[in-house]
Amino acid sequence: MTTIVHLEIQIHPDHLADAAEHLSATLAATRAWPGNEGLEALVDDADPGHVLVVERWATTADHDAYAAWRTTPEGQGRLGEILAAPPVKTVYSERLPLAL
């Protein structure tokens, strides 16, 4: 079952100008990871430093493997250099059956 991950980040005001460059470099590795089905970065209309990265994964296990890799020296990117606070990650893998 597809897993959706929301990664909410707050970019430090001093780094807004180079945020796209940092995000592009970091997210290129995310896109290339096996099981990643796509992602997008959404910018808050009221706060350009508030970004929501929405990732789609084939399975939760695919995302878990990716997240584990990100904790290794090889997987650590430079995104942390531009953040004003630690990112907040939420994983959605269950769905409510809705009668529409």
Score class of each variant (00 low, 15 high):
Trp33Arg: 03
Ile9Pro: 01
Arg31Thr: 01
Glu40Ala: 13
Ala25Asn: 10
Ala46Glu: 11
Glu21His: 11
Gly49Cys: 03
Ala25Met: 08
Tyr66Asp: 02
Asp47Arg: 09
Ala32Leu: 08
Ala46Met: 07
Asp64Arg: 15
Ala61Ile: 12
Gly35Asp: 06
Ala19Thr: 12
His15Leu: 06
Tyr66Ala: 03
Gln10Val: 08
Asp47Ser: 05
Asp62Glu: 02
Ala20Asp: 15
Glu40Lys: 09
Ala41Gly: 08
His63Gln: 12
Val43Arg: 09
Thr30Ala: 15
Ala19Cys: 05
Glu55Ser: 06
Glu21Phe: 00
Thr26Ser: 15
Ser24Met: 05
Thr26Phe: 07
Ala58Ser: 05
Ala17Asn: 12
Ala28Ile: 02
Ala29Gly: 08
Gln10Cys: 10
Asp18Phe: 00
Val54Thr: 10
Ala29Leu: 11
Leu23Gly: 04
Asp45Arg: 14
Leu27Ala: 02
Tyr66Arg: 02
Asp18Ile: 08
Ala17Leu: 11
Pro13Ile: 15
Arg56Gln: 10
Ile11His: 07
Pro34Met: 10
Ala68Arg: 13
Leu52Arg: 09
Val54Met: 08
His12Trp: 15
Val51Leu: 04
Gly38Asp: 09
Gly35Glu: 06
Leu23Asp: 05
Asp62Trp: 03
Val51Tyr: 04
Trp69Gln: 01
Trp69Cys: 02
Trp57Tyr: 09
Asn36Ile: 07
Asn36Thr: 03
Ala28Ser: 11
Glu21Arg: 11
Ala19Arg: 13
Leu42Trp: 03
Ala28Cys: 04
Thr30Lys: 10
Thr59Lys: 00
Ile9Asn: 03
His15Pro: 02
Ile11Lys: 03
Asp62Phe: 06
Leu42Ile: 15
Ile9Gly: 04
Thr60Val: 08
Glu37His: 11
Gly35Ser: 03
Pro48Gly: 06
Ala19Ser: 15
Trp33Met: 01
Ala17Arg: 15
Leu52Gly: 07
Ala17Val: 14
Thr60Glu: 06
Ala25His: 10
Ser24Asp: 10
Glu40Met: 12
Glu40Arg: 14
Thr59Gly: 00
Gly35Asn: 04
Ala58Ile: 09
Glu55Gln: 14
Pro48Tyr: 07
Val53Gly: 04
Leu39Glu: 04
Ala46Ile: 02
Ile11Ser: 04
Leu39Gly: 01
His63Cys: 04
Glu37Tyr: 08
Ser24Ile: 05
His15Trp: 09
Trp33Lys: 01
Ala58Lys: 12
Ala32Gln: 10
Ala41Val: 12
Asp18Pro: 08
Tyr66Asn: 04
Asn36Pro: 00
His63Asp: 01
Asn36Met: 02
Asp18Arg: 13
Glu40Pro: 06
Ala67His: 10
Gly35Thr: 06
Pro34Asp: 03
Glu21Ala: 14
Tyr66Ser: 05
Ala61Gly: 06
Pro34Arg: 04
Ala67Asp: 04
Leu16Thr: 12
Thr59Met: 03
Ala67Pro: 00
Ala20Thr: 14
Thr26Cys: 13
His63Trp: 14
Asp44Gly: 04
Ala32Met: 07
Ile11Gly: 01
Glu21Ser: 12
